[in-house]
């Protein structure tokens, strides 16, 4: 089973290519832009302090899944969650439950969360991200 991990977060330049990649990952439901991204590149109080990325760090007991009323989020073997988009009501409970802020609200009110597919790693030009097998 794959997990997306940080290789070296200090190398992040904030280009956001991971976000665009995430929106593009599913060729059958491809989105151009960043609105469906489960990963986010942010500056640290302005770019003079640098940049970092935020994404699901695969909790063993994911609180987001516990507060999901519809089982749209279910714990995934090896950590993190499995997301069933069609079950998501857009209640936002999971967004509040995730203390690292790694669940994002989409335009349609549903959520975007990292599913640890690793598609973004191939588009991170500076070695910030990596995929490990667990």
């Amino acid at each position: 089973m794959k997990l997306l991990k940080i290789a070296d977060v200090e190398k992040c330049v904030g280009c956001g290519l991971c976000m665009y990649a995430c929106s593009r990952k599913n060729v059958k439901d491809l989105h151009i832009g960043i609105g469906h991204s489960g990963i986010r590149a942010v500056s640290l109080s302005g770019f003079e302090r640098g940049a970092t990325v935020i994404f699901c760090h695969a909790c063993k007991e994911p609180p987001c899944a516990e507060v999901c009323p519809t089982n749209a989020l279910k714990p995934r073997k090896g950590g993190g969650v499995i997301f069933s988009e069609k079950l998501c009501l857009g209640c936002g409970n999971c967004i509040s439950a995730c203390k690292i802020g790694a669940i994002f609200e989409r335009e349609d009110g549903k959520i975007a969360v990292c599913i640890h597919c690793g598609y973004c790693v191939d588009f991170c030009p500076h070695g910030v991200l990596k995929v490990v097998e667990v």
């Binding site: 929106s23 593009r24 060729v27 059958k28 491809l30 989105h31 151009i32 832009g33 960043i34 609105g35 469906h36 609200e105 989409r106 335009e107």
Partner: peptide
């Protein structure tokens, strides 16, 4: 700011060209 994203009718070609 915003959350809009967009579609293409040629997703496979789009990923290739990208």
């Amino acid at each position: 700011m915003g959350k809009k994203s967009y579609k293409t009718d040629n997703p496979r070609l789009y990923r290739e060209v990208y």
